Amino acid sequence: MARRDYEDDPGAPEANSLVPAASAVVVDGDGRVLLQRRTDNGMWALPGGKMELGESIGDCAIRETYEETGVTVEIMGIVGTYTNPGHVFAYDDGEVRQEFSICLLARPVSGSLHTSDESIEVAWFTPDETDALPMVSSIRKRINDWRSGHGPVVS
């Protein structure tokens, strides 16, 4: 399913759904961050997705990271909460989702990199390498918030 991101865009469609979600800044022992290139918009992003009934936000981040990257993680803390009502995702099925995401800090504990139906590439990057990657501004904000060490952030 295709997705278009709008952030503080007066031409954005009005949100018709609000879904709790989690993402993870997964940092390995060398200080590299795990990213995936998404199939729905072609941009680099943190692993993450919507929370399912019966799971915690931490469990959601662990599940989504494994599903999208093949890496099992342990949650270490929180990077921030991201709830900008001006940030919406428009899907080709008509859903326009307002962002409500908790970004957690995690470390890898097992697994090996693989893509999924949601990711066309998965790789580790140094913080400086992330600067040149195409990504939506909300993902870049999460990475920059982690890099600055001023967490947890509420935005």
Results as ranks from 00 to 15, higher is better:
126 T>L: 02
9 D>S: 02
87 H>S: 02
42 G>F: 15
67 E>C: 05
91 Y>M: 02
22 A>F: 13
77 G>L: 04
89 F>G: 10
125 F>C: 00
8 D>M: 14
15 A>I: 05
108 P>E: 12
56 S>C: 14
45 A>P: 10
77 G>Y: 09
25 V>S: 03
125 F>G: 02
155 S>M: 09
124 W>T: 06
97 R>N: 14
94 G>D: 08
27 V>L: 12
117 D>M: 14
4 R>S: 10
68 E>I: 06
12 A>K: 04
1 M>Y: 03
69 T>K: 11
50 K>G: 15
51 M>K: 11
48 G>C: 04
117 D>N: 14
63 R>W: 13
9 D>L: 03
92 D>F: 07
17 S>F: 06
112 S>K: 07
97 R>F: 05
94 G>E: 03
117 D>I: 13
59 D>W: 11
49 G>C: 13
88 V>Y: 12
152 P>S: 01
7 E>I: 06
63 R>S: 10
77 G>C: 08
25 V>C: 03
126 T>M: 09
135 M>V: 11
103 C>I: 15
64 E>K: 15
24 A>E: 05
29 G>Q: 12
97 R>P: 15
27 V>T: 00
33 V>D: 06
37 R>E: 10
110 S>G: 13
111 G>L: 01
50 K>M: 12
122 V>K: 03
130 T>M: 08
101 S>I: 08
67 E>Y: 08
49 G>M: 10
25 V>D: 15
91 Y>G: 11
81 T>C: 00
128 D>T: 10
149 G>S: 06
36 Q>D: 01
83 T>R: 08
121 E>L: 10
115 T>G: 09
41 N>K: 14
98 Q>Y: 05
21 A>Q: 07
65 T>I: 09
94 G>H: 01
55 E>C: 09
83 T>Q: 02
151 G>D: 00
73 V>G: 02
98 Q>N: 03
101 S>C: 08
114 H>C: 00
29 G>N: 15
6 Y>S: 00
77 G>W: 07
42 G>T: 15
18 L>K: 14
113 L>W: 12
43 M>V: 12
144 N>A: 12
36 Q>E: 01
29 G>V: 10
17 S>R: 01
20 P>N: 08
35 L>C: 03
120 I>Y: 09
44 W>L: 07
55 E>S: 03
81 T>M: 06
146 W>I: 14
139 I>D: 12
67 E>H: 00
110 S>M: 11
70 G>F: 07
105 L>I: 02
154 V>Q: 05
74 E>A: 01
25 V>T: 12
96 V>A: 06
131 D>G: 07
45 A>Q: 15
108 P>C: 05
117 D>Q: 13
19 V>L: 15
33 V>G: 00
140 R>Q: 04
106 A>H: 07
18 L>M: 10
64 E>I: 10
18 L>T: 00
134 P>T: 05
91 Y>S: 10
29 G>F: 12
142 R>P: 15
39 T>R: 07
116 S>L: 04
26 V>N: 02
155 S>H: 06
127 P>N: 09
106 A>L: 05
145 D>W: 06
87 H>F: 06
69 T>W: 15
16 N>I: 00
31 G>T: 02
16 N>D: 06
138 S>W: 09
2 A>V: 13
58 G>I: 13
101 S>A: 11
71 V>F: 11
145 D>N: 08
126 T>W: 02
148 S>E: 12
88 V>N: 04
86 G>H: 14
45 A>M: 13
21 A>N: 09
46 L>W: 08
59 D>M: 07
96 V>C: 04
34 L>F: 03
52 E>N: 14
